[in-house]
């Protein structure tokens, strides 16, 4: 695994606190999602971002407001960070009327189109060319947006990923292919699913710059993200980044036997580099926040998440008539069985 860059703290105290709050908020939000699932208030598939917070927080904090973001089904963090109302996100996960897609998408299909977040996709690798299409459109229109295209280590084996890399290299699309390498494709460890475990090298045959970077230290993430985003925006060329992080949680909420693919010791060892703890250490050692202030932030966010859950839970289930809406932009569908 790549080592974090030598730490020289050149972020302001306000930024450090904000990054800390964002990561902590995602952690608590995701823990609440797990709880909601266990209570039977969320169904289907639910994939939480616990342990991976520094990746989304670090990268999205460096984007411009008009840049595009797209990801797969582990999408709660991106949906929250791109500006969605967290109550609507929680309500969507709970299948309620007040959800981001009025209860028709669910945990895997969160979107925030006005804020340039394009989902939220459930087929491994399937969304990758869509992300290239966003980048293609911005280039076609002569804009200088960057598209951040998240995918997992498992998706990096999908044929459509290589097809898309070829197009991105061929047409110089301003797209960052961000491989979140959390070391597991569901329950299959990296070395059992990838012929070359350095996944960033998949950019090489297509003439695309590529690198591996640490994804646990949010400050290092931000530095690398700033440099890479800058390159892609100004050179209008693609990039493949492999961000090394670790999924503390199971693949999905229904992944109830992690002993099939990893040991508790391994998880404990990974937690020594818990991204929230790493930043907390910086915040404490630099004297940016006192223990009491950190404590207060924790309880503030816990209360906030509880409040979000309660508001989402107050949202009604969708009206049966809604099932027919939004199949087409301009056409009613036949009703009944």
């Amino acid at each position: 695994m790549a080592q974090p860059a030598e730490l020289t703290i050149d972020e302001s105290p306000a930024v450090l606190e904000e990054l800390y709050r964002q990561m902590l908020f995602i952690r608590h939000f995701e823990e609440k999602c797990n709880q909601v699932y266990r209570m039977g208030k969320a169904g289907g598939y639910l994939h939480v971002y616990i342990g991976m917070e520094a990746t989304a927080v670090g990268w999205l904090s460096m984007l411009r407001k008009d840049d595009y973001v797209i990801t797969a089904y582990r999408d709660h963090a991106q949906a929250l960070l791109m500006g969605n109302d967290p109550v609507a996100v929680m309500a969507e996960i709970m299948g309620r009327q007040g959800g981001t897609s009025r209860g028709k998408g669910g945990s895997m299909h969160l979107y925030d189109i006005p804020n340039n977040f394009f989902g939220g996709w459930g087929i491994v690798g399937g969304h990758i060319p869509l992300g290239a299409g966003l980048a293609f459109a911005s280039k076609y229109k002569g804009e200088d947006r960057v598209t951040l295209n998240f995918l997992g280590d498992g998706a990096s084996n999908a044929g459509v990923f290589y097809e898309t890399l070829n197009m991105a290299g061929l047409w110089d699309l301003p797209c960052i292919f961000l491989i979140e390498n959390n070391e597991f494709a569901m329950g299959t460890r990296l070395e059992y699913h990838a012929a070359n475990v350095e996944l960033h090298r998949k950019g090489y045959p297509f003439g695309i710059r590529h690198e591996r970077m640490d994804g646990m230290d949010v400050l290092a993430v931000r530095k690398a993200a700033r440099r890479i985003i800058d390159y892609v925006r100004h050179e209008q060329r693609p990039y493949v980044v492999e961000v090394m992080n670790y999924r503390f949680a199971g693949h999905g909420a229904a992944d109830n036997d992690q002993s099939l693919y990893r040991t508790p010791d391994e998880v404990e060892a990974a937690k020594a580099r818990d991204p929230i703890k790493l930043l907390e250490n910086v915040i404490r050692s630099q004297g940016i926040l006192s223990d009491e202030q950190i404590e207060a932030i924790h309880s503030e966010i816990e209360d906030q998440v509880q409040d979000i859950y309660e508001k989402a839970d107050a949202s009604p289930f969708p009206d049966p008539e809604e099932v027919y809406h939004h199949v087409y932009t301009d056409m009613e569908v036949e009703k009944g069985h």
Binding site: F118, G133, E163
Partner: peptide, 26 residues
């Protein structure tokens, strides 16, 4: 080019790229 675009022989990526582009106005 680019309004008449020769593509590689990769139908999934062709349709996927077109879908993404269509979501933002093309």
């Amino acid at each position: 080019q680019v309004r008449v675009l020769d593509t590689p022989i990769t139908e999934p990526a062709i349709v996927g790229l077109a879908t993404g582009a269509a979501m933002v106005g093309l």
